[in-house]
Nucleic acid binder design. Sequence first.
RNA 1: GCUGGGGUGGCGAAAUGGCAGACGCACUGGCUUUAGGAGCCAGCGAUCGCAAGAUCAUGUGGGUUCAACUCCCACCCCCAGCACCA
Length: 754
Amino acid sequence: MARLRSRYGGQAETMKNYDPSKIEKKWQERWFKEGIYEPDLDAAKKPFFNLMMFPYPSAEGLHVGNMYAFTGADIYGRMKRMQGYDVFEPIGLDGFGIHSENYALKIGAHPMDQAETSEKRFYAQLQSIGNGFAWNEHVETYDQEYYRWTQWIFTQMWKHGLAYRKKQSVNWCPKDLTVLSDEQVEGGKCERCGTEVIKKELEQWFFRITQYADRLLKNLDTLDWSEKVKIAQRNWIGKSEGALITFKLRKIPGQSDDKHSVQVFTTRPDTLFGATFLVVSPELAQTWMNVGWQVPAEVKKYVDVSLKRKEMDRLEEGKEKTGVFTGVHAVNPANKEEIPVWVADYVLGSYGTGAIMAVPAHDERDFEFAKKFKLSIKMVICPHYPAKTCPVLDHAHIGEGHLVDSGKFNGIEAQKAKWEITKLVGGERKTQFRLRDWLISRQRYWGPPIPMIHCEACAAKGAGENKDMPGWYAVPEADLPVVLPRIKDFRPTGSGVSPLAAEKSFYEVKCPKCGGEARRETDVSDTFLDSAWYYLRYLDPENKKSALNEKRIGNWLPAGLYTGGAEHAVLHLLYVRFMAMALHDWGLVKFEEPFKKFRAHGLLIKDGAKMSKSKGNVINPDEYINNFGADTLRMYLMFLAPFEQGGDFRDSGVLGIERFLKRVWLYAEKPNEKKGAISLLHKTIKKVSEDIENLHYNTAVSALMIVLRSFEDEGGMKEDFKSFLKLLSPFAPHMTEEIWRETLKHKTSIHHKP
RNA sequence: GCUGGGGUGGCGAAAUGGCAGACGCACUGGCUUUAGGAGCCAGCGAUCGCAAGAUCAUGUGGGUUCAACUCCCACCCCCAGCACCA
């Protein structure tokens, strides 16, 4: 970079004609003044909501990767405007949350001050990239007038029975003394300091996203989204059709009777006759111990050790399976055989019933476990039926076949006997999802305080807004927002509560019901709640009466295009769909799906690695904009590769685009007005339109280069050059505007909708 | 392990059944210039050849076709995400 700067930085002579530093700022200011990117939100006839994921301003400034994403989205929007749409392209800051708080901690600033600094810096940078942003409609998630409504949404969740509290284990980093969200844990280690994450039992708030699992899954089929994102969501939701089957327990140590039983979930009830043992999760074994079952000491020890480790670590180390026999036996309800019950950490407490029937002959994991502990393996599905040559297995047979050793079901195709066998043993069909409820509370400072109040007196009387959770009340709407107080020591406490729990003036509050002494919730909500509804607020950010402007929402949404990173495939993009469905069910919005079309952009690579701060290969766009101009950088970024593929950033490539734009500039000064190759221009108009529609910006740029060459060599009429400028204008909005209005003397902007 | 994307010159990439390498970077030669790391012109996959031209070439091995980067089968490698979900 230093070399490039010395090469071009002060070279007034070479920059004499085309000086982006002069024209870009000028047009940015004039566009804003003229309001050319502000559609009429109430009366637009052809609304097109061009939405892009808003950035979290946690780092030193805007990253060239952000600029890549925003420019790519902007080009699409600019084409839509040329096609006659009223394009609305807002931007904002996702400034609440752990990312921003961690950055403030790192540099020793207060998050409130840091937010102010970052906001100025980000908005200045976002101005400089030349997008057609609607600056009148920005939102910042840490703004009181914004989070007031985030809190309101929380209270609505509560009122509709979608918010609840439950004790649950969470990720805990013992060095940073903080809880971490799942996405901040990488391979069992803290994303920030690399310390082994442990788990901690804490009472937490959850949103009942699982209630929407089926709809979230089904609607995917109707969406025009990047296929990889849809697949990731399907896997994450993880629907399984199976059966719940009950096994009676016997010989329970410390229990005199045989009344107890255990229920398992299986997708393969057809293999029931082959179930030769049961396995329960350490969590379930713990509950048995809690009610006084006298299990052997080694079982107790195994359960203790397993529970101390995080589920994720258990899975990671799980090449070699571990487990112990509990001493308990169960009866296989199909053939009445008595089978042993083991406890092993390969069975998860959080999925299904926390217990499985093990069919080693037809399940890889059970097979491995049975081999290791020398448990019996009984084949009940024969792939070569009726030739009864089922050999000794060296791996589980999970494929198809006919049942054998299965009583009256012998000879039947396994798949067909599934539900018959379930019926025989009194089991029930059950659809199971992998999706878990959304853990929404954070024991941190920098977020919207959860707007809930707990009253001991009411709880004692069993009073409250939810009979399952006596004593809990939502903060009344008139009392919102619950303002996040400025406190001196905002560091995470390490004791399982938010720093707000040390602020008496914050948590001491009157009960909204009985008026007695009550305590405010001191946790804040997850930053993903802020971003689950931000796009709705863009349409009326100043609205003091309501979170949503239903009329405008009806006109502008679902959004025509949503773009962003694929890393949010199952986080933000799932939460935002869930939220839209909830709002839909409450009658506030008309759609269930907020984004008709979603496209994930690719990642920028530098020196063979993904750009990231830890790798030290992050590019700040400012230097490039200062030296070459935003137009050059925009166009260079788009020229790298197809937008959805990402690109390989290298300094030297910028020069090619700079040369091209200078030639455009020169040509505008001294056009070669001969007839030229008209059919080439027409083909190019078609190609560029199609390429932009498909987000193939790189080939659109190359087509424009070919046309310019043809103008230079063979000439082109003025009208043809104007067409060319229009095609170029989404990529280089400032320079084309300068030529359009200053050289060609047009009265209105080249970016005006026709 | 599963899922998705990908493998083409020195580099980023085009071409989705019809002259492989468009467009750009880098590089080489020339012109211009007081000079230029500026601009312009030309060349630029490999091998052989003074040249015309010939042969080879899109991860590997097979196949379909008059014709394959493109379609089919098997395999290898890279990137991203998920990962004992019963």
